[in-house]
Nucleic acid binder design. Structure first.
Length: 587
DNA sequence: GCCGTTTTCGGCCCGACTGTTTTCAGTCG
């Protein structure tokens, strides 16, 4: 698939045009086309072959021609043209806070600045200060921008951000001055990584709440402290992050929450719709002329635009607004649809809990089952179980299950997919289990695709765990062709895992969406190795919601008995999974 | 460059902040 490659080209063109001072709307058009392309699960080459490029929203005649040209020749004339006269290092400067295309263009023209090093020199030797429109403060801000770009990690994981946000919210509630408070931004949309932490609150007096906020014990620095807005820097896992608090009036809470939740693209489209209706939408409300017609609740804001409320996880301008307008939003997965955790480890391999503790924790979450899936023998570093130890564990589980009433422990394994694609346990053993998860744990560069495809041919394999193998905080993942894995999953009826551990979230939302469209079943498991690990399910559910998965797409919505039924053919065969798509209720 | 049950041309989201200006441009979210 060349979608991402072409999107990167279009983004590059936008960068270059921005610096060249091209009309802003043209830049916006390129950026929008790039975003739509990067999000799209259909293969751009297929659409091009069918002459349907212009049916993609945001792609018109001009960009369609450029995509065609690229697919045919491997080149885009416009790309070369746009980048002519623009040194590679100049584009990077757009990433510095406070620096935009206009200023970069001027610096390049007047001072011959070509990259970050040139810019640093110009700041140091005072030549930057000589530029028109450049005062002492702007130079200082640019200096700070360069510094913070080098110090701040791009984004932090959703889990790390949630910990701080939860702490901040609890801290604010304790003041008794705030009445309503919520996380907003990408945190509320449950993106896998988060930039800044945005918190919205109502309460009085604003200045006092902000003062308390900036006095948060974890504050490293206070960036701003006004009557309605405060900004602080906090430390998360060694990285510095900005956290913003905004105080709004009760009557504006809904529109402010809507606005600060985003995404930007979603908001832009909503505003366009408001305008078409002769309305104006801002963080202060929905207005007809000077009269405010909505703003107190998010539902009211959407209703004023003739739309149903939509879940924050869907607000990315990926078609959700159009569906909502037809009252055809899917009923996406809810936390309550998850009846159990399908991937947990115990002390038998590399977990830190005994089975009864895990049962207790799972019961507290309202689950009716867990699948114990410890590692298999060849995963030495994780204490993988030999066949004998696995059999002993199965007997132990049988014994515990006797006394559990309506709760059930599924006897499972996370069996290793070996270097030749065979499994680490023979079928005789796998056959006695309730739930077989297979996964790659070594040889990340060695025939991973072929090995996975082969493992999926075994009908005893129910799920492929963490199919991409990536770690969000920094591991590329296996050298694997996920499109072929998806195809094989469709053909064999194997489910794919959405590993809910915050650093994995694997499959990611892009491939989850593809899997959903192909009718592939998804299995959510936290892969927990510790007591708190079961709680990670909320991130898995968040990503599932971002991919628009519905209850019926997820095997965790089945009962323990249904899952333990040996024949996966009945419940999971490809033929029975062909999705009839009935019209849906909004929600 | 995209787009159209108001338009094939003339629009294109909105508001705040900052720093540099003397009425506004640039940047950000």
């Amino acid at each position: 698939m060349k979608n991402k490659e072409i999107a990167a080209h279009l983004d590059r063109i936008a960068d270059a045009l921005e610096i060249k001072g091209e009309i802003g709307f043209k830049v916006i058009a390129y950026r929008k086309a790039a975003r739509v392309l990067a999000d799209m699960t259909d293969d751009i080459e297929n659409l091009a072959a069918e002459g349907r490029l212009q049916q993609i929203p945001g792609i018109g005649g001009g960009i369609a021609r450029k995509i065609d040209e690229y697919l045919k020749t491997g080149e885009m004339k416009k790309y070369r043209e746009a980048l002519t006269g623009i040194p590679e290092g100049l584009l990077e400067l757009l990433e510095i806070q406070g620096l935009g295309g206009k200023t970069i263009h001027l610096m390049h023209q007047e001072l011959g600045i070509r990259d970050l090093e040139d810019l640093k020199r110009a700041v140091a030797d005072g030549s930057l200060a000589g530029l028109r429109g450049m005062g002492e403060k702007r130079v200082e801000n640019i200096r700070k921008g360069i510094e913070s770009r080098e110090r701040v990690r791009e984004r932090v994981t959703i889990y790390e951000a949630s910990l701080i946000a939860d702490e901040l919210i609890a801290y604010l509630k304790k003041t008794r001055l705030v009445s309503r408070v919520s996380a907003a931004g990408s945190l509320r949309r449950m993106k896998e990584t988060v930039g800044d932490i945005d918190i919205l609150a109502t309460g009085k007096p604003g200045a006092e709440i902000i003062r308390r906020f900036t006095g948060f014990p974890g504050t490293l620095r206070v960036l701003a402290q006004g009557e309605t807005k405060g900004s602080i820097v906090v430390r998360i896992e060694g990285a510095e992050r900005q956290a913003d608090l905004r105080i709004v009036a009760e009557s504006e809470y809904g529109s402010a929450l809507q606005y600060f939740t985003g995404s930007k693209a979603h908001n832009i489209k909503l505003r366009g719709m408001a305008k078409e209706r002769g309305l104006k939408l801002s963080e202060y409300g929905v207005f007809r002329g000077d009269r405010k017609i909505a703003g107190r609740e998010e539902e009211d804001v959407y209703e004023a635009l003739d739309l149903p409320w939509m879940p924050p996880e869907m607000r990315e301008d990926r078609g959700e607004i159009e569906l909502a307008a037809r009252n055809a939003l899917p009923m996406i997965l809810g936390a309550g649809d998850i009846r159990g955790d399908l991937h947990v480890h115990t002390r038998a391999s590399d977990g830190s809990q005994e089975i009864p503790e895990l049962v207790e924790l799972a019961r507290r979450l309202g689950y009716s089952y867990i699948a114990v899936c410890d590692h298999s023998q060849s995963v030495k570093y994780a204490g993988g179980l030999s066949p004998e130890r696995l059999k002993r564990q199965m007997r132990e589980i049988d014994a515990i299950n006797q006394d559990l009433g309506d709760f059930r422990i599924l006897k499972g394994t996370e069996v290793d997919i070996l270097h030749d694609g065979t499994l680490d346990f023979p079928d005789e053993i796998l056959r006695d289990l309730d739930f077989v998860v297979a996964a790659v744990h070594s040889g990340f560069k060695t025939n991973v695709t072929e090995r996975m495809l082969r493992a999926m041919e075994n009908p005893l394999v129910r799920v492929i765990a963490h199919p991409s193998g990536r770690l969000i905080s920094g591991r590329e993942g296996y050298d694997v062709d996920l499109d072929r894995v998806l195809k094989q999953a469709t053909e064999t009826g194997t489910a794919l895992e959405l590993n809910a551990y915050y650093d994995r979230l694997d499959l990611n939302e892009f491939y989850l969406k593809k899997a959903r469209e192909a009718g592939i079943k998804i299995s959510l498991g936290t892969d927990t190795h510790s007591a708190g690990g079961l709680q990670m399910m909320r991130f898995g559910v968040g990503i599932a919601r971002r991919a628009w998965l519905e209850k019926s797409d997820v095997i965790n919505s089945l009962s323990g008995e249904e899952l333990a039924a040996k024949s996966r053919a009945a419940a999971l065969s490809p033929s029975s999974r062909r999705r009839a798509r009935p019209s849906r209720q909004g929600g």
